[in-house]
């Protein structure tokens, strides 16, 4: 493409006629991010209670609510309570393979209709129908790839069985995670991001979610739920989900 060549030619010409403002280098990147990521996860697994405490503190500061349960079997009852408080009867969930457990039975016991997202992609018409379902369901249940303690952030990767709008269109977002998701700092997240992007099979979007959707655009009055969820809940499961 000629415009590309022209663009780059002009940039090179400008750069050639100018000295640098000061000597500078970009950040040093891990040569083998996957190994570094594994090491970080291993080290963190020993001090997860402190990390969880910090996560809770920051998550609550941004308006999130954390629930703790001992096993995954208790997740549906928490979801059931949240749904009843909001007069919600339908729950949207990631596919069990993405979630790490199957909540359908438990949610049925809570008298909730469970709308499970498919793992395989259906045809265009079915996809449109699913979008309408997602847009009209009041509560979305997802997993969490990384729970970042420093900022109270939940990081979710899109992919098969984990559509991105599950955590966006419903008015209430409930996310389930265990100790393996916890990391302490943004610097550690950077290593994970390096490792993920090297993975060609990754989904098209990575979302960092730090509390409920908010705005202060009218007279700087903080208001929740402008486009995304008004309520964000996290359920921490003490016994790891995938054992």
């Amino acid at each position: 493409m000629s415009t590309r060549a022209e663009f780059l030619r002009r940039i090179r010409a400008e750069l050639a006629r100018t000295p640098a403002l000061f000597p500078a280098t970009p950040s040093l990147r891990p040569a083998h991010p996957r190994e570094v990521a594994d090491t970080i996860r291993r080290e963190l697994s020993e001090r997860w209670p402190a990390t969880l405490q910090r996560f809770q503190q920051e998550f609550e500061r941004v308006g999130g609510v954390l629930h703790r349960v001992a096993t995954v079997q208790e997740v549906p009852s928490v979801v059931g309570r949240l749904a009843r408080e909001r007069d919600a009867r339908d729950v949207l969930t990631w596919h069990p393979s993405a979630l790490g457990f199957d909540p359908a039975r438990g949610l049925a016991d809570e008298k909730l209709t469970c709308r499970t997202m498919p793992e395989a992609v259906p045809d265009a018409a079915a996809r449109r129908a699913l979008r309408d379902t997602i847009a009209t369901t009041p509560l979305g249940l997802t997993g969490v790839d990384v729970a970042l303690a420093e900022t109270g952030t939940m990081i979710l990767r899109s992919g098969p069985g984990r559509p991105r709008s599950t955590s966006l269109l419903p008015a209430t977002h409930v996310a389930v995670f265990d100790r393996t998701a916890l990391v302490e700092s943004l610097a550690q997240v950077a290593v994970l991001l390096e490792a993920w992007h090297a993975d060609e099979a990754s989904g098209a979007v990575i979302n960092f979610i730090t509390g409920p959707s908010r705005t202060a655009d009218i007279e700087l009055t903080l208001t929740r739920g402008v486009h995304g969820p008004k309520d964000v809940h996290a359920i921490f499961v003490e016994r790891p989900l995938r054992e």
Partner: peptide, 14 residues
């Protein structure tokens, strides 16, 4: 500390 949403977009739908 972070804005509510940081979205990393890697191209169109897979």
């Amino acid at each position: 500390k972070l804005s509510v949403y940081t979205t990393l977009v890697r191209g169109p739908r897979k």
